[in-house]
């Protein structure tokens, strides 16, 4: 996994609540057996005027000029501001894959759906939960300022606004460590292989029907 330490990035606002993973990456793109290449189809139904198909060249497709990520001022954005319950719905990891492939590294919102939140950390994507009024203020500043950027420091667990205000945030220490170092979870877990084997051996005796 790509490590995440610091980022000074352009910010884009996704100003709607309950953005679901079907909207983030529609179902037809889930037929791929790869983990990469989903970026061009991120928010496909909102971003384009036609219905996209897997394997299609997206460069000539008609874009929806009203969609926020199509606006010139947000090209190259790496930080996405979101509203409540972002990433709800399906467990598809294709959603964080598509966000990451598009270029996002940080998501900031008042709340995220559990499975999506978890999936982000496995893909070098940092979702940050902030109080609703802090998020409101970021939306207001972002809307008002062309070229609005935020500085995100995972080691220090701070977001620094252009006006110098520093906003602290929380991350689980274990997840923070993994993301800072780009560690592979599986390798970490297998350090406990003996404990897993012991647990399994006891379980085999206590509940043999689970091993039939």
């Amino acid at each position: 996994m790509k490590p995440f330490t610091k980022l000074d990035g352009l910010v884009a606002p996704m100003d709607r609540a309950n953005v679901d993973t079907d909207a983030i990456i529609p179902k037809q793109f889930l037929k791929s057996i790869k983990r990469s290449g989903f970026g061009p189809n991120l928010f496909d139904e909102w971003r384009y005027m036609d219905v996209g198909q897997p394997g299609e060249d997206n460069s000539g497709r008609p874009k929806n000029p009203d969609f926020v990520l199509n606006q010139p001022r947000y090209q190259g954005a790496q930080v996405l501001l979101t509203r409540d319950n972002f990433g709800c719905g399906s467990s598809r990891e294709h959603a964080p894959w598509a966000l990451e492939d598009f270029g996002f590294r940080v998501l900031i919102g008042p709340s995220f759906a559990d499975i999506f939140f978890n999936n982000c950390f496995k893909n070098g994507l940092l979702p940050i939960k902030l109080a609703a009024d802090e998020v409101d203020a970021l939306f207001a500043q972002c809307h008002a300022t062309i070229g609005y950027r935020l500085n995100v420091d995972l080691d220090a667990m701070t977001i620094t606004r252009p006006d110098g205000k520093v906003i602290p945030f929380d991350v689980d220490p274990f997840r923070r460590e993994c993301l800072l170092n780009g560690w592979d979870d599986i390798g970490l877990t297998l350090r406990h292989a003996d404990k897993i084997r012991d647990f399994e051996a006891r379980r085999r005796i206590d509940q043999p029907w689970l091993f039939a």
Binding site: S91, E93, N118, N119, F174, D185, I186, T189, L190, I196
Partner: peptide, 19 residues
Amino acid sequence: AHGIGTSEVEHVMATQCLL
């Protein structure tokens, strides 16, 4: 019982555990 992402599917296959 709960849903997991694909990285976790791989993690469970490799370790029989979930974080």
